[in-house]
């Protein structure tokens, strides 16, 4: 474990806590894409298949349980909770996210580190996570009214993978044979997808104006 990875995990944790806080306290999910949340639930489900078979550390197991629990409960809130579901904007959240899954699965079957079920599922989750934010970014462009919590949620979600890139650089220089091109490229693509959001988020913060994404 290194400081970059810890910072990344904490940032990721805060992103889900901010989202859960928003949904739980104001009982609203306005501006949140259910599609992105469903993709994230699938990402965690396919990445943590070995949560009970491959014990790494207490920290690792607890964090996996938190990410699994939070992503599925957010999907539950947005689908089932009688108050929250009313604020879900399904007419705007129309990204065909299932179309994202097939290319990720095919790519995972072709490009992976080891052709085993668990490794292919893990690689699938990596590719899927890289594109999981797309429905959310599309929704933000459409609805344009980005409330603070949603803006913070997307910002933290993008920042966590940027910390992970620093973690991979650190591990590359400090651990022998730590070479994982698939993870690195996928993580880089994921972070780049947030680039324009980061730009507008920073501009709005610098000029102290409400966050607006261009149409």
């Amino acid at each position: 474990m290194n400081i970059f990875r810890l910072a990344g995990d904490m940032t990721h944790l805060f992103s889900v806590l901010v989202l859960l806080l928003k949904i739980h306290t104001i009982k609203s999910c306005a501006g949140i894409s259910l599609k992105t949340q469903e993709l994230y639930a699938i990402v965690f489900a396919t990445r943590y298949l070995d949560i009970f078979t491959n014990y790494i550390s207490l920290y690792n197991t607890i964090m996996k349980l938190i990410f699994l629990g939070s992503s599925f409960s957010i999907v539950w809130y947005m689908r089932r909770h009688k108050i929250v579901r009313r604020s879900y904007d399904k007419d705007q959240d129309t990204f065909r996210h299932y179309f994202l899954m097939l290319p990720c699965l095919i790519l995972a079957l072709i490009i992976n580190e080891k052709f085993t079920f668990r490794e292919v599922m893990w690689t699938f989750s990596l590719y899927l996570e890289a594109v999981a934010i797309l429905p959310q970014l599309v929704l933000l462009q459409r609805t344009r009214n980005i409330d603070n919590l949603t803006g913070q949620y997307v910002f933290l979600l993008g920042a966590y993978r940027a910390f992970y890139i620093l973690n991979w650089i650190y591990r590359y220089f400090t651990e022998e044979h730590f070479v994982h091109w698939i993870t690195w490229i996928s993580g880089l693509v994921q972070t780049l997808l947030y680039a324009d959001f980061f730009y507008y988020y920073f501009q709005s913060w610098k000029n102290n104006v409400k966050l607006e994404l261009p149409a």
């Binding site: 995990d9 990721h12 491959n54 790494i56 964090m63 992970y164 044979h177 730590f178």
Partner: peptide
């Protein structure tokens, strides 16, 4: 040589 795997990450 211990091949470090990436699966110790979240």
């Amino acid at each position: 040589k211990v091949i470090v795997n990436i699966h110790d990450e979240l």
